[in-house]
Design a protein around this nucleic acid. Structure first.
Lengths: 150, 150
DNA sequence: CCTCATTAGTACGATATCGCACTAAATATA
DNA sequence: TATATTTAGTGCGATATCGTACTAATGAGG
C-alpha cells in the first residue's frame, strides 16, 4: 500500500495554495472595477520598497516571469496608477513611479482591504502573525535561492 | 504620512502569495510534458480524500470556481489520468475516478517532487512544518467560512 | 402531479499567465 | 575600438482562469 498519507510538505504547499486562492478572491471582491490583486501588489510594493525601481526588479520581487510583469504593469498604466519613465542609467530599462491617482487608489484599497480582514484580525492576533512570519520569510528566501540555482 | 509600513496581515498574504508562486513553478518544472500543478493537485486529492467524489466537491476543496475545475478535470481526462462516470445518485452530476495510468503518474510525480523538495526538507524539518500546519489550516478554514458568509 | 426554486455541470468570451523568440542597449573580451 | 555575450523589455501564441449565462435534473410547496 503506497503512501496514501503524503508528507507534511505536500500538505504545507497545498494549504498555502488554498490560502493564497482564498485571500486573493477575498481581496479582489473588494477592489474597484477592473483592478486585480496583482495591481494591488505592485502599488503596495512601490510604496513599501520605494518608487523608481525597474520592471525586472518588481518581477523578481514577486517571482513572476518578466513577461507577466510587463502585462501587469501595462494594466496599471492603463488604469493611470503608475507611470513608466525612461531609466536615466540604462536606456533599455524603465523606472516605475506612482501617479497621484495611484497613490490615492492604493490608500483607499488598503482601507477597504483592512475592513475586509477585520474578522480575520480578530481571530488571528498580530502577535500570532508576527511569530509566523519569520518562518514564511525564511521559506520564501530559501525557495528563492533554490530557484536561482537552477 | 500615511501607512508606509503595512500591517503584518498584508505582509503575511504577500509572503504566502510568493511562496505559492515559487512552489508551483518549482513543481511544474519537474512534471512531465503538459501536466500542471492543478492536475497534480487533483490526483493527490483523489488519493487522499478518496475517489468517486464529484467535480463540485473538488472545486470546493481547492476553493476555485466550478468552471475552473471543469477545465482542469477536462485536462486530466485528456491526459488519461482520470475517468468521469455518471453519478448513480444524481443524473446531473459526475463521479471522478483515477485511471491506473493516473495512479502510476501520481506515484512517480510524488517521487519526483520529493527529490525536488529534498533540499527544502533539509532546512525545514518535518517537526517544524508540523508546528506550522495547524495555524495555516485554521486560517484556511476561517477564510473558507468567511467566504461562505458572503 | 405541477409549478418554482435550487443545484451540477458546461459553453462561451474576456483576460491573465507565461514560454519563446526577438530587439536594442550594455558589458565583457579581444 | 570591434566583436561577442549578456541583459531589459516586449510581441506573439498557447493555454489557464473565471464571470456570466445557459441546460438539465432535483427538490420543495401547492
Amino acid at each position: 500500500m503506497p503512501d496514501t498519507r503524503p508528507s507534511p510538505y505536500f500538505v504545507l504547499f497545498n494549504e498555502i495554495g488554498i490560502i493564497h486562492q482564498l485571500s486573493r478572491t477575498l481581496l479582489e471582491e473588494r477592489l474597484p472595477d477592473g483592478l486585480l490583486s496583482s495591481h494591488f501588489g505592485v502599488l503596495n510594493h512601490l510604496v513599501r520598497v520605494g518608487e523608481g525601481t525597474t520592471p525586472l526588479a518588481i518581477a523578481r520581487a514577486f517571482q513572476v516571469p518578466k513577461t507577466t510583469m510587463t502585462h501587469t504593469l501595462g494594466g496599471c498604466v492603463k488604469h493611470g496608477l503608475i507611470e513608466m519613465r525612461p531609466n536615466p542609467d540604462d536606456a533599455r530599462s524603465k523606472c516605475i513611479w506612482l501617479t497621484s491617482k495611484g497613490r490615492e487608489i492604493r490608500e483607499s484599497m488598503v482601507a477597504q482591504a483592512a475592513t475586509g480582514f477585520e474578522g480575520f484580525a480578530e481571530h488571528f492576533s498580530e502577535e500570532r502573525i508576527e511569530t509566523l512570519l519569520p518562518v514564511l520569510t525564511e521559506m520564501r528566501q530559501f525557495l528563492d535561492k533554490a530557484r536561482d540555482a537552477t
